[in-house]
Design a protein around this nucleic acid. Structure first.
Lengths: 234, 234
DNA sequence: AAGCTCTACTTTGGATCCAAACATAATATC
DNA sequence: GATATTATGTTTGGATCCAAAGTAGAGCTT
């Protein structure tokens, strides 16, 4: 994929995510091409990719429309990630956690501990957490014995809000987010514990529950509605 | 997607599945275009679709290569389908099975009963089973409250052997396949039972186990190796 | 006036052309 | 003789052209 091709897909993803192209509305190739300053060719290619990612869908006989996502869809996407990461964790527990892998996971756990040790959250901590969280999840999914699970998760993550690193939602209320990250950290540690002991079912369930942290734990901690803002990165 | 565009994706899928383009080998646009008798444009579009489906992957900086699947990948893809269909079943059980839906599922169960009632299997029964099996699964997945799960399963099903309707593998040994379908039928009935009673966890686990029927039950029934032949349909 | 049909316009799909990037091979220089 | 640089060839990506299919609108007919 050339740089600009990748860029077209990425920019379109962003624009769609931001609601620039309204959900349910038809999206034309020429309009997008002019908007992005490229010819129709890379747009046509990008549309195929975005169709497979689930952000676009066929509009009748001709062309595409922006897919609309309900709150139920978002919840479902989070659950899908939960069961898939749960599957990865269970397989990992069943095949036995190698010392090297335990080491690797402990690194990210330790980084999490250090991050939270000072008792509060700073602005720049958000990125650090996002990174270590991503690596922790990636390590588990990537070690499940086949790239198939990771692929399924990657495709699912294209849906808005579904990705694991969309946890931190409000950098204005870092004190309240702190408690959420504490919970996430504890869950990470419990997962590692279960993995180390070969407790497949427990690891699976912990991982499943962990998926909900960006969604349902807000209510619990008084952080407002369950759905946050879209993550800034892409 | 135009007819011929769809046809290019479909034909390429078939050719890749049949091993015409060897796994791990680079696949060029011009070569495929000439092979299929079209210009490069539809091939380029198809490559993007197949990349997202996971059948092709980027080969370094330039072009694509046919992805190779190990036995572990196939097993994993089956497990992925299992957890996803399990998720759908659990959600369905938790939200309560509507009378209309129970009716719908009963139709396919009943058709399965009728198919197996005569005590043996005929050649033409294979298609009938394939159809009712597909409808049974589709109905459950499609009623899970969000198309997200179905999409994830659909994407997963593009991988060879992963689809639910790749159960019937040997139309030469119909007498042995009969026992397998009997088991599948029983599992269908148990799933419906669990769904009707709102037994979410049980429905989920039954559905998960059911996913293995095309893979692991062969050994059990003395049907030879766990992996069958690719399904003929597309 | 309503419905049907024909036409004109819009939009997408396929083919081709051109440019750019990567790879390979050959030649020149150290 | 080996290495580096250049030149050529191969392949992909982007733009444009043309054709086909769909849609909408207007005009004609009943």
């Amino acid at each position: 994929m050339s740089d600009s091709d990748k860029s077209v897909v990425s920019r379109l993803r962003k624009l769609i995510g931001e609601g620039f192209y309204p959900p349910g509305e038809r999206i034309g190739e020429v309009a997008v091409a002019e908007q992005l300053g490229v010819s129709r060719t890379p747009v046509r290619l990008a549309f195929r990719t975005l169709e497979q990612e689930g952000l676009l869908q066929r509009a009748g006989k001709r062309g595409f429309m922006v897919r609309e996502f309900t709150e139920a869809d978002v919840l479902c996407a989070v659950e899908v990630r939960g069961v898939l990461e749960g599957l990865a964790a269970r397989r990992l527990a069943e095949q036995g956690l190698s010392p090297a892998l335990a080491e690797e996971l402990t690194v990210w756990i330790q980084k999490g501990r250090e991050l939270l040790a000072k008792g509060y959250l700073e602005e720049r901590d958000v990125d650090v957490w996002s990174e270590l969280n991503r690596r922790f999840h990636e390590t588990i999914v990537g070690s499940a014995g086949s790239p198939v699970i990771g692929d399924a998760i990657a495709r699912n993550n294209h849906l808005p809000f579904a990705a694991a690193d969309s946890i931190v939602i409000d950098s204005e209320a870092l004190d309240r987010e702190y408690r959420k990250l504490q919970l996430a950290q504890t869950q990470h540690e419990l997962v590692l514990q279960a993995l180390s002991h070969g407790e497949g079912a427990r690891a699976e369930m912990l991982m499943r529950e962990h998926a909900f942290i960006g969604l349902r734990y807000g209510e619990l901690l008084g952080l407002g509605p369950g759905l946050g803002q879209p993550r800034a990165d892409d």
